[in-house]
Design a binder for these strands. Structure first.
Length: 483
RNA sequence: GGCGCCAUCUUCUAAUGGUUAGGAAGCUGGUUUUUCACACCAGAGAUACGGGUUCGAUUCCCGUUGGCGCUACCA
């Protein structure tokens, strides 16, 4: 049974899914699940210049990939459609007209040039930049004259000053802002007829019956402005919670401009990060599991999430820590899942020479040492490509008499090798090692180097078993040709 | 410039008006392993500063400093 809790993530399709957006989506998702409410995806695409359909697709894909599925919204519809602001332009205008007729807003004929001049003037006198509310006084005659000049008005909402707007923030506590610091009467509909963010959000949140708005703290001043609009429209405002920002290592807001693709979820996806790791990492920064657990999934997070347990201070996005989560999940998620996710990282190789079971064994043999799946490509190379043994490895490991003895002995023992049993393969090596009185490094290293070209790597038994009779034989013979 | 938010190890954080200020990542050392990784053990590492309130403050209050954010006909 659903409660009336309704929350949303309302991204703007002006870029691919941002880490910060994903974190906000996660909080909203967790809050909805925790309270058995409804999680909604809505698109704030009123910026026609920057909005692109490919970004919309990336955002939808990314959220789904993370498992943050919505109950209502963009691609699935719902009772409060449309969930895309560009489809509600007329509706916003209608609502703005209501505000005009009730004296809460007015048409502003100021040109961009006039506003720019005002700003210059304020800058010169070191005054706070703001609109001087000159449009409030516009008479009917003036308006007509402006119209005749061809000026197209915007709609401004009257911000009464001074006045204190305050609310109880579910994360930050009490917040109070004086309307005098809001920059004057604010545009709610641009002269091109399209509503501005601060207005459209309010209308949408009213239309969609949102009960809680959980978003980044960079919106705190917007919240003050929006609260004024709720009041002017005689509507009950939702509850607000402003989450701390995510910083980079230099304590700056994570931004596309400064950090490029590393602020986007699909960057991590392409690198072979597990969605489970990203969700876990995102959840545990600024929020701590009540039992102090570090590793937990979406479902468990939803069971314990609480806004008042969210930290007030910003968190640094620390890739080293993300990496720890990721390597944990690469090691512990079901093998078949890891194998299927590994496919994109094996395209450089001809995987048809192995059976599905062997491919799984290949992934299993190397997964423990991986931080991201993208490292898989290099890690499994020796299973596929013709082997070249680096000169220094050959020199150090394969040139001794003992090494040649090991390789020759193994060559002769190949007939009795239990190929399908990696533990058996290891035992077989131990057994012939005993015959020639060699063990440990002296025994294993030549074999390892001959088969993989490296002195470190997966379990030797696994290497032998996976490579199989033919490859092992030819690689041993090839290794013996080294001087 | 104005306004707002924030302040515990390098990083993510826990806790409490009285604790040896706890955990995790990273780092260092060790154990284990044929090697690497994992795992395990150990070590170094923090309450920004100054005033109050109090028997007692890291915790509550004020100030300072610092960091960050917002200040568009972007969202």
């Amino acid at each position: 049974m659903k409660t009336d809790v309704r929350v949303r993530i309302a991204p703007s399709p002006t870029g691919n899914l941002h880490v910060g957006t994903a974190r906000t989506a996660l909080y909203n998702y967790l809050y909805a699940k925790r309270h058995n409410g409804t999680f909604i995806l809505r698109l704030e695409d009123t910026d026609e210049e920057r909005s692109k359909e490919t970004y919309t697709k990336d955002i939808i894909d990314g959220l789904k990939w993370l498992g943050l599925n919505w109950d209502e919204g963009l691609d699935i519809g719902g009772p409060y459609a449309p969930y895309r602001q560009t489809e509600k332009i007329d509706h916003y205008s209608t609502m703005a007209n209501h505000l005009i007729s009730s004296g809460k807003a007015y048409l502003c004929y100021a040109t961009q040039e006039e506003l720019a001049a005002l700003k210059e003037e304020q800058k010169a006198t070191n005054a706070a930049p703001r609109y001087d509310n000159r449009g409030r006084e516009t008479s009917a005659e003036q308006a007509k004259q402006f119209e005749d000049e061809g000026r197209i008005p915007s709609v401004r909402f009257i911000v009464e000053e001074p006045q204190v707007v305050s609310w109880h923030d579910h994360i930050k506590g009490e917040i109070a802002i004086d309307t005098s610091d809001l920059g004057g009467d604010m545009v709610i509909v641009k002269s091109n007829g399209v509503a501005i963010y601060n207005f459209a959000v309010v209308i949408d949140d009213i239309d969609m019956k949102m009960t809680h708005v959980i978003r980044g703290e960079d919106h705190i001043h917007n919240t003050a402005k929006q609260l004024l609009i709720y009041e002017a429209m005689n509507q009950k405002a939702p509850e607000f919670a402003h989450a701390p920002l995510i910083f980079d290592i230099e304590h700056q807001k994570l931004s596309k401009r400064k950090h490029g693709e590393t602020v986007h979820i699909d960057y991590y996806r392409a690198q072979g990060y597990m969605p489970e790791a990203i969700v876990n990492y995102l959840a545990q920064m600024s929020f701590t599991h009540p039992e102090g657990k570090e590793i937990y999934d979406l479902e468990e997070a939803a069971a314990v999430f609480d806004l008042d347990k969210v930290s007030k201070s910003p968190a640094v996005f620390d890739v080293a820590r993300l990496n720890w989560f990721n390597s944990h999940y690469i090691r512990s998620l079901p093998l078949d899942l890891i194998v299927s996710r590994a496919t994109p990282f094996l395209t450089a190789y001809d995987t048809s020479t192995y059976t599905a079971a062997q491919l799984a064994a290949i992934v299993a043999s190397v997964r423990d040492g991986l931080t991201t799946l993208s490292e898989l490509t290099a890690a499994v190379k020796f299973y596929f490509d013709p082997l070249t043994i680096p000169a220094e490895v050959a020199q150090d490991v394969l040139s001794s008499d003992n090494a040649k003895k090991v390789l020759n002995t193994m060559l002769n023992a190949l007939g009795t090798m239990p190929w399908d049993d990696h533990q058996g393969c290891k035992k077989a090596v131990d057994a012939f090692g005993k015959e020639i009185s060699l063990k440990g490094k002296e025994l294993y290293w030549p074999v390892r180097a001959a088969l993989s070209g490296k002195t470190q790597g997966p379990d030797l038994g696994s290497i032998i078993s996976i490579l199989g009779a033919e490859r092992v034989k030819s690689r041993l013979e090839a290794a013996l040709t080294h001087k």
